[in-house]
C-alpha cells in the first residue's frame, strides 16, 4: 500500500482543482443553411485543469450557445463519437484534458478533415464507413467448428492481431492522413486497420481476398508512412505498423 503517496498526490490534485481558469476556445462554426463558408467564433469558458475539451464544448452548448453542434456519447474514449481537430491535431475531445494544452493561447477546435462538413464539428461519416465495409471486415472461415465449441486459437496467435482489435472507428487516423485529404478514394488507415484485424486472425480464411482489395491503386500503396495516423489514434494502435504489415503480406502473398 502506498497510501501516503496517494494522499499527497490527491491533495495536489484537490488544490489544482480549486483553481479555475478562463480559457478561450476558437471554434470553427458552419451552418450550411446560413453560412457560405465556415467561420471562427470565440468563446470564453471557465475551466478546471482536469476538465476535458468535451466539458468545454458542453459548457458552451449548455450555457452560452445551444446551437453549437458536435457528436459525443460515452465521454471516456471508447465510443469514438467525438474525434475532432484540437490545436491542429486529431484527438477525442473527451480524452483531451485542459492541463495538457497550452491555455495561454486560444484553443482551436474544428471538425476532422477530409470528410464532408455537415454542421460545426459534425462531418458525414458515410464515406468513412463505406471504405470500412469494402475491406470485408468480418470473419470469413471455411472450417466449420465442432457444434457448440469454440475454434481453438493459441495465445500467441491471438496476440498477433490484438492491437488492431482496439479500433473504435472514430476516424481520427483516416482524417489525419494527408493522402486521404487529397484523395478521398484512398481506403485510409482505419479501413486497413480493420482489414489487418482479420488478415492476421488465424481463424480467418479470406486474407487473400482482402490483400487483393488492398493491393488496389487506392489501397495500401498510397500510404506514405507519415505516421500521422499513429499519432492521432486515441487507442494507441500502431496504425502505420499495421499498414506496413499488410504491405509485407501483399508482397509475400500471404499473412
Amino acid at each position: 500500500m502506498t497510501t501516503a503517496t496517494l494522499e499527497a498526490k490527491s491533495t495536489d490534485a484537490a488544490d489544482a482543482a480549486i483553481r479555475s481558469f478562463t480559457v478561450t476556445f476558437l471554434i470553427r462554426r458552419f451552418d450550411p443553411d446560413v453560412d457560405t463558408e465556415p467561420r471562427w467564433q470565440d468563446f470564453d469558458v471557465e475551466m478546471y485543469a482536469t476538465d476535458r475539451v468535451l466539458d468545454a464544448l458542453h459548457k458552451i452548448k449548455w450555457e452560452q450557445d445551444g446551437s453549437l453542434t458536435f457528436r459525443r456519447s460515452c465521454a471516456h474514449g471508447i465510443c469514438g463519437s467525438d474525434a475532432m481537430r484540437i490545436n491542429g491535431r486529431n484527438r477525442l475531445a473527451c480524452k483531451t484534458l485542459i492541463k495538457d494544452l497550452d491555455i495561454s493561447k486560444p484553443i482551436y477546435v474544428e471538425a476532422i478533415k477530409g470528410l464532408p462538413l455537415e454542421k460545426d464539428l459534425v462531418v458525414d461519416m458515410e464515406p468513412f464507413f463505406a471504405s470500412y465495409r469494402e475491406v470485408q471486415p468480418f470473419l470469413i472461415a471455411n472450417s466449420t467448428p465442432e457444434p457448440g465449441k469454440e475454434r481453438i486459437q493459441s495465445i500467441a496467435k491471438r496476440e498477433i492481431f490484438d492491437d488492431t482489435t482496439k479500433c473504435i472507428l472514430c476516424a481520427a487516423c483516416t482524417s489525419s492522413c494527408p493522402v486521404f485529404w487529397t484523395d478521398g478514394q484512398y481506403f485510409g488507415p482505419a479501413a486497413i486497420v480493420n482489414a489487418h484485424r482479420f488478415i492476421f486472425d488465424s481463424r480467418d480464411d479470406a486474407a487473400s481476398v482482402r490483400l487483393d482489395i488492398l493491393n488496389d491503386k487506392e489501397g495500401v500503396w498510397r500510404c506514405r508512412t507519415t505516421f500521422n495516423c499513429t499519432d492521432a489514434c486515441p487507442r494507441g494502435i500502431e496504425v502505420t505498423k499495421a499498414i506496413a504489415e499488410v504491405k509485407q503480406a501483399i508482397m509475400r502473398g500471404k499473412p
Partner: peptide
C-alpha cells in the same frame, strides 16, 4: 449462455485464450 458465447466466438470475437487455446 454457453451457446451465446460460442456463437460470438464463431462470429469472430477475439476472446482471450487459455494455454490450450480455449476461451
Amino acid at each position: 449462455a454457453i451457446d451465446a458465447v460460442i456463437d460470438l466466438e464463431n462470429m469472430g470475437l477475439p476472446f482471450n485464450r487459455t494455454p490450450e487455446g480455449k476461451i
